[in-house]
Amino acid sequence: MRKSKDHYTCFQCKNPVLKIESKKDSIINKDGKIINKYFHDDCYNEFLNNRKEKEELDRICQYVKEEILQYKSNQRVPTHLVRRIQALKSGQEYGVSRNSKVYGNESGYSYEIILKTFKAKKFDIIRGIKDKSKFKNDTHKIDYIMVVIINNINDILERIEAKKSSDKRLNEINLDFSDEKNYKRNKINDNKVANKLRDIW
């Protein structure tokens, strides 16, 4: 939406932004039409971050829906599941105690770690929810699933961090080995040059 001939309205903050300073992005609306939106620099970065987080959240919800809950394509992702995942992202145990922090992590977990924990515990969860008589409803079942995730997410995080640390050390070793090979190669070349000079003189 345009503010004037020289301005657009920033899609993110709704304030005017100069045309010559604006960032442009295309968005598909509910009718499937492509609409151009304009942003301030900072607002555009915020918009991209929000969009990335939404895509990551959608990826987790679709994974749980299809791979764990094994819903049909026409069944919607439960709102309670979305809220529980968002709460874990922000460090809250929503549904267990709405105002309590997840033990061991005050700032929450990234969606990447949450998804990896779901994948790592997939078969344990499926076995746990196989007996439907244990659960009063889907909300009760989702609460059980999230307890499994919360109880295991720190372990998954530690494994991932340990692997990253191990990969970093391996890269450093490879770099050291590469430097040593280059040193030896250069030393051999220096010796060849010295021998040639000796022959000349």
Results as ranks from 00 to 15, higher is better:
Ser110Leu: 11
Leu88Arg: 02
Asp179Arg: 00
Met1Gln: 08
Lys181Gln: 13
Lys72Asp: 15
Tyr109Val: 14
Lys52Met: 12
Lys14Glu: 15
Ser107Ala: 11
Ile153Ser: 07
Phe135Gly: 11
Asp31Trp: 02
Ala120Lys: 05
Val17Glu: 09
Lys89His: 10
Tyr63Gln: 13
Arg185Asp: 15
Asn36Ala: 06
Tyr38Val: 11
Ile142Ser: 07
Ile156Met: 07
Glu112Tyr: 05
Val96Trp: 04
Glu93Lys: 03
Phe118Met: 15
Cys10Ala: 07
Thr79Val: 10
Arg59Trp: 12
Lys3Trp: 13
Leu175Val: 12
Lys187Gln: 14
Tyr109Ala: 09
Leu18Asp: 14
Lys116Pro: 07
Leu81Trp: 03
Ser165Pro: 05
Arg159Lys: 09
Lys141Ala: 11
Tyr38Glu: 12
Val64Gly: 03
Asn151Met: 11
Gln92Ala: 13
Asp167Gly: 00
Asn174Lys: 08
Asn105Phe: 01
Gly108Leu: 08
Gln12Met: 10
Ser73Val: 08
Arg169Val: 13
Ile156Arg: 00
Gln12Lys: 04
Ala87Lys: 00
Leu81Val: 09
His7Ser: 13
Ser97Gln: 12
Gln12Phe: 01
Ala120Phe: 01
Asp143Gln: 07
Val77Phe: 03
Lys181Phe: 06
Met146Arg: 01
Phe11Leu: 14
Arg51Ile: 11
Glu21Gln: 05
Gln86Arg: 03
Leu115Val: 10
Glu172Lys: 02
Lys52Trp: 11
Leu69Lys: 03
Leu157Phe: 09
Ile200Arg: 05
Arg198Asp: 15
Lys163Gly: 10
Leu115Met: 10
Leu88Asp: 10
Ile126Glu: 14
Asp131Leu: 08
Ile160Gln: 09
Glu93Thr: 04
Ile156Trp: 03
Asn29Tyr: 01
Ser97Leu: 11
Phe177Val: 15
Lys89Phe: 09
Asp176Leu: 11
Arg59Gly: 13
Asp31Glu: 14
Gln70Ser: 13
Asp58Tyr: 01
Asp143Tyr: 03
Gln70Asp: 15
Trp201Tyr: 07
Val148Asp: 12
Glu67Arg: 03
Val82Asp: 10
Met146Trp: 05
Lys121Val: 13
Ile35Phe: 01
Gly128Leu: 07
Gly32Met: 02
Ile28Arg: 02
Lys54Leu: 13
Glu53Ser: 01
Ser90His: 05
Ile85Gly: 05
Ile173Tyr: 04
Asn171Ser: 08
Ile125Phe: 02
Lys14Ser: 12
Leu157Asp: 15
Asp6Glu: 13
Asp176Pro: 03
Asn186Gln: 06
Leu69Trp: 03
Val17Trp: 00
Phe135Pro: 03
Asn74Pro: 04
Asn195Trp: 07
Asn182Gln: 09
Asn45Asp: 15
Asn15Phe: 03
Lys30Ile: 14
Phe177Asn: 12
Glu46Ser: 00
Tyr8Thr: 04
Asp25Val: 01
Glu161Lys: 00
Leu115Ile: 13
Trp201Asn: 14
Lys164Arg: 09
Ser90Tyr: 03
Arg51Phe: 06
Lys54Asn: 10
Ile129Phe: 03
Glu46Gln: 01
Leu57Met: 03
Thr139Ser: 10
Asp131Tyr: 02
Ser133His: 04
Glu67Thr: 06
Ser110His: 05
Asp138Asn: 01
His7Asn: 10
Asn99Ser: 11
Lys24Leu: 09
Lys119Gln: 14
Ser107Leu: 10
Phe39Pro: 07
Cys61His: 01
